[in-house]
Simulated assay, not measured.
Amino acid sequence: MTPSSLLVLGAGELGMAVLHALAELAEPRTTRIAVLLRPASLHSAAANTLRERGVELVAGDLQNDSQRALAERFAPFHTVICCTGFAAGPGTQRKLARAAIEGGVQRYVPWQFGVDYDVIGRGSPQDTFDEQLDVRDLLRGQQATQWLIISTGMFTSFLFEPSFGVVDLAQNRVHALGDWDTAVTVTTPEDIGRLTARIVLAEPALSNQVVFTAGDTLTYGQLADTVDATLGLQLQREAWSVPMLLAELAQDPDDNLKKYRAVFAQGNGVAWDPAVTFNAGQRIAVTDVEQWIRQHLKAPTTTH
């Protein structure tokens, strides 16, 4: 049965991509699409754009509203899709999962658009990941609400975020997290939006499973080669070993980027074969790293 009503939590980069894809793919006469926004955001430009596309706006505050208040907001909807990440603060993801169950939601898609937390396990360098496992345990430990986890890997753009330090064009440098043979899976937010819409609207309905997507899976060596070949560069290469990254994190234990670098350098649960993905199975075209580079980057110009 196609969900008759869908509520998306949050309208950031990912939430907007999911909402636009749902508005495009869902049958407008029979499907109610809504987004939960903080009251202060109800009259923003983004909110007005969504309203024009037929998306209903629901007021709520994921961070500050009680579990009971959120359960009441969620109750009228068949499927609730959480597109608000760790920025909402520790404990929020657990609260939202409990609210979905308390509200009698038929299917809940938690914020798990990332790595394979089951493989990474508890106690990883990125401590926020333990809460993701708490959410999985909570959903798997009950039968009232079906669940669907969508694992997408890293946002493709994050590989090129200067602060993350993998590809730094300004410094003409590329760093491997761990080793040049360590692999990473990435998907663009636009593709995650399109694929999430297809996954939640799929018939027969998908539930109680982890679904994987991948725009690309490649090693840091392949990434460096791809950047060089696509932009006509010869980037300087330096590997950041796991011991080095763990030592850096120990010096600065609250630094979020250092936590992420250490987890990705360990290489567990952060990459999978594109052949096992929903997009491969459905033969849906996605953006790989080379295409992303062509669309978004150009070689830095050198001045003499």
Rank of each mutant, 00 (worst) to 15 (best):
F155Y: 14
Q171R: 14
A176Q: 05
R122H: 10
F129Y: 14
G141K: 00
W180T: 05
D179A: 15
V174S: 05
R140H: 09
P125T: 08
T182E: 10
P162H: 05
W147G: 00
R136K: 14
T182S: 12
D116Y: 11
F158L: 13
W111N: 11
S124M: 07
Q106F: 06
T145S: 09
Q142W: 06
V119W: 11
M154G: 04
Q112H: 14
V119Q: 15
R140V: 10
Q171I: 05
V119N: 12
D134R: 03
R173H: 12
S151M: 12
A176N: 06
E131I: 01
T156R: 08
T156G: 11
L169M: 03
T145A: 07
R122K: 11
T188P: 00
T185V: 04
F158P: 05
T188I: 02
T145C: 10
Q132V: 12
T128P: 09
G121H: 09
T156H: 10
R136P: 10
S151E: 14
D179R: 14
L148H: 09
R140N: 09
F160D: 00
P125G: 08
V167T: 07
R107M: 02
Q112L: 13
L139Q: 01
V105D: 00
L139A: 04
A176Y: 05
M154Y: 05
T128E: 13
Q142S: 07
E102G: 11
L159C: 00
R173C: 09
W180K: 06
W180S: 05
L177G: 11
E102Y: 11
H175L: 05
E161Y: 14
V186R: 00
L133I: 09
W111K: 07
Q106W: 07
W180G: 06
P162F: 04
G153T: 05
T185R: 01
N172S: 15
S124D: 10
G165Q: 04
V119S: 15
D179Q: 12
G103F: 06
A170Y: 04
T152E: 01
V166T: 12
G141N: 06
Q132T: 12
V167H: 01
T182D: 10
E161T: 09
D179L: 09
Q106L: 08
R136C: 15
Q146V: 05
L148S: 07
Q142D: 03
P110L: 00
D181S: 14
W180P: 06
E131L: 02
P125I: 07
D116G: 10
L139I: 03
V167K: 02
V166Q: 04
V109G: 02
Q106I: 04
V105T: 05
L138F: 10
V174D: 01
D137M: 14
G153K: 02
A183E: 15
N172D: 15
G103N: 06
Q106V: 08
L138P: 06
D127G: 13
Y108F: 12
I150F: 06
